[in-house]
Computed example of a mutant assay.
Amino acid sequence: MNKFHGTGVAVVTPFNTDGTVDYEGLKGLINYLIEGKVEYLVSLGTTGEASTLNKDEKKKIWEFTAEINNGRLPLVAGIGGNDTAATVDNIRTFEANGYDAILSASPYYNKPTQEGIYQHYKALAEASALPLFLYNVPGRTASNVSPETTCRLASDFKNIIGTKEASGNFDQFNQIMRDKPADFMLISGDDPVALPMIALGAVGVISVIGNALPRQLSDMIRLCLSGDFNRAAHLHLDLIEFTRMMFAEGNPAGAKAALKHFGICEDYLRLPLVPVSSDLRRSIISETEKIVSKTTLAV
């Protein structure tokens, strides 16, 4: 199986109460995810609160993640931005030791045309020594990478190897699957639709909820990829309410609340993000315990 088939986790960045990076928490989380049998890790995607980290912090987190991972899983670095020249520079100067690919979100706020998006990724692809994943998340960027642009990039640049699609638009997924090169990977960027996207031909998910429940999610994704959708559907439905809670008051606040309950790391975030409310926290803990208990009984 391709090393990017299955469950990738967009790893959260644990913080201490003073706002500094909690490296002990990050170490514990990395080991927890590896023990949870996920297929690969994404370091400093948007779930990792990369927009609130400075350049030195990012460099140290990438290096620390590679050190703790120690070659056990493939690693993907999240490197994006809405300034093409700055993103190109960040990719060119990225110290890639231990990393297998780069994930780069489409430019936010600027609202570029499709030609602008194409030229942005063209510049990134020409600058990158590593394979590149596109990341389309219109709900955050305020612009959509069209299926035509996605497939044009996939056809024109061999080092653009896949896309994390978080548009939620199945018409768009259909067009990508129909028109893409055979080896170009469609990856779900939304946990709730990973199962139907794999049924369509996607190769897995880059997940948020996998931070908290890596075993349960990765088991479900592997069942999907093996074609056992009947068994996968039961696990998928078990996770629906938990998944809703993870995003009810913003990402990654929900995931961090669950991780705190497990004792993996604290739930501190950097402003403007804040922890979940006490009511939601109680609901997350209750749902988490229900899922873990059900998993234990099934073993």
Results as ranks from 00 to 15, higher is better:
residue 11 V to G: 04
residue 149 T to E: 05
residue 155 S to K: 14
residue 31 N to A: 04
residue 125 A to V: 10
residue 101 A to E: 00
residue 50 A to L: 11
residue 254 G to T: 10
residue 146 S to V: 10
residue 291 I to W: 02
residue 83 D to W: 13
residue 207 S to Y: 02
residue 79 I to S: 07
residue 242 F to M: 14
residue 184 F to V: 05
residue 128 S to F: 02
residue 150 T to S: 08
residue 76 V to D: 09
residue 278 S to F: 05
residue 102 I to H: 09
residue 120 H to D: 11
residue 33 L to R: 07
residue 91 I to K: 13
residue 21 V to L: 07
residue 101 A to F: 12
residue 94 F to W: 14
residue 156 D to L: 13
residue 143 S to I: 09
residue 195 L to S: 01
residue 70 N to M: 12
residue 132 L to G: 13
residue 10 A to I: 02
residue 292 V to R: 12
residue 217 L to T: 00
residue 218 S to R: 11
residue 48 G to S: 07
residue 278 S to D: 13
residue 272 P to H: 12
residue 284 I to Y: 06
residue 275 P to Q: 00
residue 115 E to N: 12
residue 174 N to G: 13
residue 200 L to R: 10
residue 102 I to P: 10
residue 51 S to R: 13
residue 103 L to E: 07
residue 145 V to R: 13
residue 196 P to T: 08
residue 184 F to P: 00
residue 213 L to D: 01
residue 45 G to Y: 06
residue 276 V to W: 00
residue 89 D to P: 15
residue 56 D to V: 15
residue 115 E to S: 06
residue 196 P to Q: 08
residue 10 A to F: 03
residue 80 G to N: 11
residue 141 T to M: 09
residue 150 T to W: 10
residue 145 V to C: 09
residue 239 L to G: 00
residue 61 I to M: 06
residue 152 R to T: 03
residue 290 K to Y: 06
residue 279 D to P: 00
residue 167 S to M: 05
residue 73 L to V: 04
residue 189 G to E: 04
residue 289 E to I: 15
residue 173 F to W: 13
